[in-house]
Simulated assay, not measured.
Amino acid sequence: MPKMKNKSAVKKRFSFTGTGKVRANQSGKRHGMIKRTNRQIRDQRGTTILNESDAQIVRHFLPYGR
């Protein structure tokens, strides 16, 4: 049986924590910052942990957990 391939786009955008949760970049930070409140911009720094239902989709595309 051949090896399953990881989805290249997913491996660039997501990573895993030590406990196996899926870490992702915050959304809504690309453009239009003038509309966002300062608090919203501040809260969207760094990364976030995905909801478990969304994390299952990401794990499907990364069968070997890269």
Results as ranks from 00 to 15, higher is better:
Q40T: 12
A9N: 10
S15V: 09
D54G: 01
F61I: 12
S27V: 13
T47C: 12
P2Y: 01
F14L: 09
S8R: 13
N38M: 02
Q56S: 12
H31I: 04
K7R: 13
N38G: 08
R23W: 07
Q26R: 15
F61G: 02
R59C: 02
T37A: 05
L62E: 03
N51S: 15
M4F: 00
L50S: 06
S53V: 05
H60N: 13
K5T: 13
P2R: 01
K7P: 01
K11V: 11
L62S: 00
K5G: 06
G28W: 02
G18T: 10
E52H: 14
N25Y: 14
F14K: 02
S15G: 09
M33S: 05
V22M: 08
V10F: 13
D54T: 13
N51H: 14
A24V: 02
E52R: 15
R36L: 14
N51W: 09
R13Q: 08
V10H: 04
Q56C: 04
R59K: 10
P63F: 01
F14P: 06
K29Y: 06
R23H: 09
V22Q: 02
Q40H: 10
N51F: 10
A9D: 02
V10C: 07
D54W: 05
H60A: 10
T19Q: 15
A55G: 08
S8M: 06
K12G: 03
M33E: 00
G46V: 07
Y64A: 05
R66H: 08
N38F: 07
R30D: 00
E52F: 09
Q44Y: 07
Q40P: 00
Q26L: 14
K12T: 06
K7V: 11
K11S: 03
G32E: 09
R66F: 11
N6D: 11
D43E: 04
K21N: 12
I57Q: 06
F61C: 11
P63L: 00
K12P: 10
G18C: 03
K29L: 11
A9K: 12
K21A: 08
M4I: 09
T19D: 12
G46W: 12
G20W: 12
N6Q: 06
Q40C: 07
I57W: 07
A24Y: 09
I57H: 01
K21L: 05
S53H: 01
K3D: 05
F14M: 04
N6S: 15
A55N: 04
